[in-house]
């Protein structure tokens, strides 16, 4: 392998139902920065059925070229046709870097591609930068449940590949009206033993905002004590226009849905205000929320590690404090409206 032959920073653009996932825009932002450092271009890989119309959005957020593979076989995500498309694109365009979102799709697709290309892959990165000397990609990620950070390189193989946690990178300001060059390589998608059949797609009914998009989160942990007690947190969230999230313990206990979990095995959030209520603050949880602007912790245990990262820590009983706080905010809001 002559690594000099590999040029360009590519992003696998995840789209579901022709809706581009937020992480893809974040990756384009990062790819733009890396490509500018390397003096090269950003390529967006867009796979799906009837998706070419999305190419302009990708240009506005940093793509120079959009490589589109449009096929009925790519309508729902399936490992094999997606992996085959990407490996074919790598063979043709030879990118030096490919970034994927560390999502339920990216974390399935990227390893399959890496094994097919015999290329290195680093999972769940939280930081990416270019080594000044070698011009190689430095990929930094948490390990041991978030206890340590490790920087990983793939010096002798191309492409260098990484999955990146959603919510960690920043998208660039929209470049309104930007256009990308469109490439449509011919890729044969012929079903074989590795093609699975998707017989049913069942969407979860979500009438709440994704916690990753919330400006304020009221988050509960084991200390909330029961499923019913989450109503207390919901009360506070409602008066603040906030969403409810939780730590892993609450998901394991069956109190709350997995999609509301913050942390190493849940989502990474950076809201304006993060209320940590009855959350001890295991390192795995902190990994998902410590970038929040303001952290307010309420916990009975004065030695809980959450107090080490909280901007404002209250040692006390959430069952008493939260309802009073909710009522006070409600009263004050009503007073402001002159009711």
């Amino acid at each position: 392998m002559n690594i000099q032959d590999y040029k360009g920073v590519f992003v696998f653009v995840q789209q579901v139902d022709s809706h581009i996932s937020g992480v893809s825009y974040e990756l384009l932002g990062k790819a733009r920065e890396l490509a500018d450092t390397l003096n090269t271009e950003v390529g967006a890989i867009l796979l799906g059925s009837n998706v070419e119309k999305l190419a302009d959005n990708l240009a506005e957020y940093g793509a120079d070229t959009v490589i589109v593979v449009d096929s009925e076989e790519l309508k729902e995500y399936r490992t094999e046709p997606y992996a085959h498309s990407i490996t074919s694109i790598v063979e043709k365009y030879k990118p030096e870097i490919i970034l994927y979102g560390a999502t339920a799709i990216g974390r399935d697709l990227a390893p399959r591609v890496s094994a097919r290309l015999k290329a290195g892959l680093t999972a769940d990165c939280t930081k990416l930068d270019i080594d000044e000397q070698t011009k190689g990609l430095r990929m930094t990620r948490p390990a041991f449940g978030g206890n340590i950070m490790a920087t990983i390189i793939s010096p002798e193989h191309r492409p260098q590949m990484a999955t990146v946690r959603p919510g960690v990178m920043q998208r660039i300001a929209k470049r309104a009206g930007a256009k990308a060059k469109i490439e449509k390589p011919q890729i044969e998608l012929t079903p074989n033993n590795k093609y699975v059949e998707v017989t049913q797609v069942v969407k979860k009914v979500v009438n709440k905002i994704d916690i990753m998009d919330a400006k304020i989160l009221v988050s509960g942990g084991r200390g909330v004590g029961s499923k019913e007690n989450f109503a207390i947190l919901k009360g506070l969230a409602d008066v603040l226009g906030a969403e409810v999230s939780c730590s892993r313990a609450c998901v394991d206990a069956g109190w709350i849905e997995k999609d509301q979990q913050v942390g190493q095995t849940g989502k990474t959030v950076r809201p304006h205000v993060y209320f940590a209520v009855g959350i001890s603050g295991a390192i795995q949880h902190l990994a998902g929320m410590e970038e929040s602007d303001i952290i307010i912790a309420i916990n009975k245990d004065p030695s809980a590690p959450i107090f080490d990262v909280a901007d404002y820590g209250i040692v006390g009983d959430m069952n008493k404090i939260v309802p009073i706080l909710t009522e006070k905010i409600k009263a004050e809001k009503a007073a402001k409206l002159g009711v």
Binding site: P142, A143, I148, I153, E290, V309, G313, I314
Partner: peptide, 27 residues
Amino acid sequence: PTRVVQSFPKSLKAAGVKEAALEPEEA
């Protein structure tokens, strides 16, 4: 193909104000 070149403890942000003796109302 990949190699760990550096590992380091995660730096956490410094703690802020901690109030340990407030009544619920005061809190």
